[in-house]
Nucleic acid binder design. Structure first.
Lengths: 228, 228
DNA sequence: GGAATTATTGATCACTTGATCAATAACCGT
DNA sequence: ACGGTTATTGATCAAGTGATCAATAATTCC
């Protein structure tokens, strides 16, 4: 009974640390990395700012680790979604659709924050680099596998991975500001992927449908101040 | 002699306003939009923070207008560089090379700041939208012209403009974090442009040279804390 | 049950931010 | 030369930030 965590006020350090980390991720996702303050985390879990400070060497490191955790979770989710795919083509198709879906906008916003804040916060900067590399490595494995299976034909799958990620990031950034138009450009990624991987046009789904198919225009979830 | 502005302490409002705007642009470019503070601007031109406040309705609006001015100048510079080009192909080639050059990293950083800050600052958000549209319009004119001259063949030049800008923005964002690799991916934009505009491969210069040509690896100019 | 350990608090510091307002002083018109 | 206009200052406020430290109280160990 003494281990009942819900009623007790004092928690085990590991438990509290996890609670802080979770609160930090939530704040970052729905208010942005810059809203990740000592007091915001504290008030969200109902403790004193000093306690959060006690568990973290500095806010800089909490911001960095929170960003890292969010991206790691992102990759994990996508990996899970790709697991049932039986071909590399199907997996790539799913990956592209997932990464360009409207529900990605919250994570994209975190990426934008990280790119911007990273210029001032060294710890975050290295984490951004690490997570970009992690994404590239993840996608590169998929591409290499596809090549090995004879589904793809690419001279340099690693470079193609970087290319696709760059396009996706660019489109997602645009989608945050101009949701409607960017969403209509999803075919671009497929087109480039098909071209770079030696696939026939349309192999990854509906092709470059720029300005043709008017998709349902439901904007992504707003944050505190829905400005974009 | 009473109009000698260098020796006098009191300046004409228009002159002072211009001075503030210029200082704001400089600060934004070499320290980021988030470093654009009342006191930073004041100290740079050697006046009191209150004076800057006197000339600006709010810092939010100064940040927004400064961003707008920077991007407007960016477009202007590129337009000037494109002027001597005699063909649309040459112009597009120049545009791509310019926009992906290392000297663009300072402006790219401002874009990243703006995308991130825009989520919290409505005035900046609308300015970001306006300037993205301005860039698209600028590029679209070039593409339409090329089509009219028979150099390009595109179904929807406006959509292609958005595509190219998204790719460029994605690559530039990557270049800020991972300078080396992103710089090697410049061929991607050319490849996509050639494909979407019905050009022969290589028409826009050296093609997709991913991981082949080891370019000179001089990183862009650092900011206050060179983290990336 | 009592004592040691330590999670947690409350108070507080130093710093930065944007903003306001009366007071000052430079410039211009007459 | 003088007076009015107003650019400019200095002081100051309130809000928000990260961080520290002694004091407290809950938990565990013996």
């Amino acid at each position: 009974m003494s281990t009942d965590p819900s009623a007790s006020r004092r928690k085990a350090p590991i438990e509290r640390a996890a609670e802080i980390a979770r609160a930090a991720r939530e704040i970052a996702l729905d208010e942005g990395l810059s809203a990740l303050t000592l007091r915001a985390v504290a008030s969200r879990i109902g403790v004193t700012p000093a306690l959060v400070s006690h568990y973290q060497p500095s806010m800089d490191s909490l911001v960095a680790s929170t960003f890292g955790a969010i991206v790691a979770a992102e990759i994990g989710e996508v990996a899970e979604e790709l697991a049932p795919c039986e071909t590399a083509v199907a997996a790539l198709q799913t990956l592209i659709d997932t990464l360009l879906g409207p529900e990605r906008s919250t994570v994209t916003a975190v990426w934008l924050d990280a790119w911007s804040l990273g210029r001032r916060h060294p710890a975050l900067a290295v984490e951004v680099g690490v997570q970009m590399d992690a994404w590239q490595a993840f996608l590169a494995v998929l591409l290499h596998t596809g090549c090995a299976r004879g589904e793809f034909r690419a001279i340099d799958p690693d470079a193609v991975a970087w290319q696709l990620l760059a396009i996706i990031d660019g489109l997602n950034a645009h989608a945050i500001v101009r949701y409607g138009h960017a969403q209509r450009l999803r075919g671009l990624v497929r087109t480039v992927a098909e071209h770079e991987l030696g696939l026939r046009s349309g192999a990854l789904g509906p092709g470059d449908d720029s300005g043709r198919r008017p998709e349902p225009d439901h904007p992504p979830a707003p944050i505190t101040v829905p400005v974009y």
